[in-house]
């Protein structure tokens, strides 16, 4: 199925979780923030949140500098 990830169209397997998506795209930041369709997802829900067709997803590396 198709999704938009960080502004790019991507084709991914159906019924995968955020956790699996993070693995699939080899995102290595352990502190990653994920939003789906402009909604923040709690990290504890990455395993149980399933990606849907046409979802718009952003991986955000938290900026904590000042």
């Amino acid at each position: 199925m198709e999704i938009e990830l960080n502004g790019l169209k991507e084709t991914i397997p159906e019924n995968i979780s955020i956790d699996a998506l993070i693995d699939l795209f080899k995102e290595g930041d352990p502190d990653l923030i994920v939003e789906i369709n402009c909604k923040y997802i709690f990290p504890k829900n990455y395993k149980t949140t399933t990606i849907m067709e046409n979802d718009t997803i952003e991986f955000i590396n938290p900026n904590l500098g000042g």
Partner: peptide
């Protein structure tokens, strides 16, 4: 809301937040 400013592609996005009950 969490405002995310992405300077390289100059996009600003507003992400909806809710409290974590835990």
């Amino acid at each position: 809301r969490l405002l995310r400013i992405s300077g390289l592609d100059m996009k600003i996005k507003s992400i909806k937040l809710e409290p974590d009950p835990e």
